[in-house]
């Protein structure tokens, strides 16, 4: 049993992993065909994960309704909304002018946008309560944030528009560009490099069978 559950998947990952790496470096017809075939498989598998996602979502919420757990009304709303959109989509189509698009344009879109817009209230409240110059690091961040916030709006650009040409670089828009182009970009690049190196290391661990958490506990 251990052979089927552990060794076979590890072997498949090892072979497929090295084959896929090879397709990127070997410009042969056979490797290109293999790469094309693999991308088709990935798309197919991704479609099936959608089915698994939907079924587990529905199961979790049906269980919540069945047990009358706290907030079961929200679960009921979710299932009704899910079924309504699915039925509308399958029965009448999803093109512009259909009931599906009407529901999307007039219910889903405004609801999602409204919910997300609420963050403006929380950001304002948090900016008063939490954004403090407690130490040097916090002060640097605070000053940079204020410069970028003002520099990214027309009002900020207007504020320093009248500066003479020889000190134009002190304009809020120029300082914003400098912060984004230099400090932000170098920090982002460092993070991206770290993520990429981490990704390579994790991929190698999975391919070589060192990291096997994807196989589950049993």
């Amino acid at each position: 049993m251990d052979f089927l559950k552990r060794r076979v998947p590890t072997l498949i990952v090892l072979i497929v992993g090295f084959l896929m790496i090879g397709t990127f470096f070997v410009p042969m017809e056979a490797s290109e065909a293999l790469s094309k075939g693999a991308t088709k498989w990935i798309r197919l598998i991704a479609a099936f994960t959608l089915i698994i996602g939907i079924s587990s979502l529905l199961r979790a919420h049906v269980r919540k309704i069945y047990n009358m757990s706290a907030g079961w009304g929200y679960s009921l709303t979710l299932i009704i909304a899910f079924l309504t959109m699915t039925i509308l989509g399958f029965a009448k189509g999803i093109e512009d002018g259909t009931y599906f698009m009407w529901a999307f344009n007039n219910i889903q879109f405004p609801l999602a946008a409204t919910t997300f817009s609420l963050t403006a209230f929380f950001i304002c409240s948090a900016s008063y309560r939490a954004f403090r110059a407690r130490n040097i690091e916090a002060t640097i961040m605070l000053v940079a944030a204020i410069i970028v916030m003002v520099g990214r709006i027309p009002f900020g650009e207007m504020l320093t528009d009248a500066l003479p040409q020889n000190i134009k670089f002190l304009g809020l828009d120029n300082m914003t560009s400098f912060i984004l182009d230099v400090f932000n970009m170098s920090a982002r690049r460092a993070v991206l490099l770290g993520v990429a190196l981490g990704g390579i290391a994790t991929s190698l661990r999975i391919i070589l069978g060192i990291e096997r958490s994807y196989q589950g506990k049993d």
Binding site: S127, Y128, F131, R132, I146, I153, P154
Partner: peptide
């Protein structure tokens, strides 16, 4: 523009209070 300026005002006010 106005909301950005309002947030900055709140940050400054919050720090003055702090």
């Amino acid at each position: 523009s106005v909301i950005h300026m309002f947030i900055i005002l709140l940050i400054v006010l919050g720090n003055i209070m702090y």
